[in-house]
Design a protein around this nucleic acid. Structure first.
Length: 262
DNA sequence: ACATTGACCTGAGAGC
DNA sequence: TGCTCTCAGGTCAATG
């Protein structure tokens, strides 16, 4: 689930439900914690209040505004946040649970345990240490920077877009979607992509991500011409009606329309 | 430098 | 209904 639009929506729901409320207790499954213990997590947040939530690519940062560390959540493939009223039970694959003093809980559900919770003293340093590129929606990522960063790669355009150290936030689903609307085949090499195609790609990236967030990242709420609604072999291309094709690019299964995408 | 594969983990959903 | 099997929106390391 969690690519940039999903994580942005988690961040917003975190903002709505978890800020400015005293955290009574916090617990997490050991295997979800990276580089920290459960005690570290408690020390950092029990008795405190979250005061802000920031997103960079697929990472979400919850901070207390004091000098304490940020809680960094990466959602893996199956992670999501869910807010629970006082009388609600934690979800089935709850891996982290923060209980607020005034009732209610915030749960991190992660079925496949591929997500991670870390602590970071500073977001900028974290981004640098994890070798993450700029967030795909960062205003500072202007077209020139976008072009420059992609030009530094030699593989398929889809692989470059999915590479988090080039640009942060795009995964298998949304690279497919962006390339579909840009009319570019996922296997094309960067070197073969013209300046005007590159501009289209940049513009399309913004448009697709904005539309996905707008639709709550739910495929059925996205515009009818979105490929995400037809991610299965032989489904009709929403643009031309010819069957979409399932293709693997750098080890990931994706979909494209061989007619619309050149 | 890049692609590919397997590992990490688990269970939802498809197929029988 | 129940069993087995495949596959999954992420990332990393090892290999070719």
């Amino acid at each position: 689930m969690p690519e940039l639009p999903d994580v942005e929506l988690f961040r917003r729901s975190f903002e709505k439900t978890a800020l400015d409320r005293e955290i009574k207790s916090i617990s997490a499954e050991k295997s979800m914690l990276e580089g920290i213990s459960e005690t570290d997590l408690e020390k950092a947040f029990a008795g405190k209040k979250f005061s802000s939530a920031i997103r960079h690519g697929k990472h979400m940062f919850g901070g207390t505004g004091e000098s304490g560390p940020w809680m960094v959540i990466h959602f893996g493939m199956t992670g999501f946040l869910v807010y629970l009223q006082t009388d609600q039970q934690p979800p089935k694959h709850c891996r982290m649970l923060a209980t607020f003093a005034d009732g209610g809980k915030l749960a991190f559900d992660c079925r496949r345990k591929l997500g991670r919770i870390r602590l970071a003293a500073d977001i900028k340093n974290f981004v640098r240490d994890m070798d993450l590129g700029p967030d795909a929606l960062d205003e500072k990522l202007d077209f020139e920077e976008f072009e420059r960063r992609l030009a530094g790669t030699r593989g398929a355009v889809k692989s470059a877009l999915m590479n988090q150290s080039v640009i942060s936030g795009l995964g298998n689903i949304y690279t497919d979607e962006i390339l579909f609307h840009a009319g570019i085949h996922p296997r094309r090499k960067l070197a073969d992509i013209s300046k005007s195609e590159m501009e289209t790609l940049y513009r399309t990236m913004h448009r697709v991500l904005a539309a996905a967030i707008e639709a709550g990242a739910e495929p059925e709420r996205m515009p009818a011409n979105f490929l995400i609604r037809n991610r299965q072999p032989q489904a009709p291309c929403p643009n031309c009606g010819s069957p979409v094709e399932k293709i693997a690019v750098s080890g990931r299964n994706g979909y494209c329309c061989p007619v619309c995408q050149k």
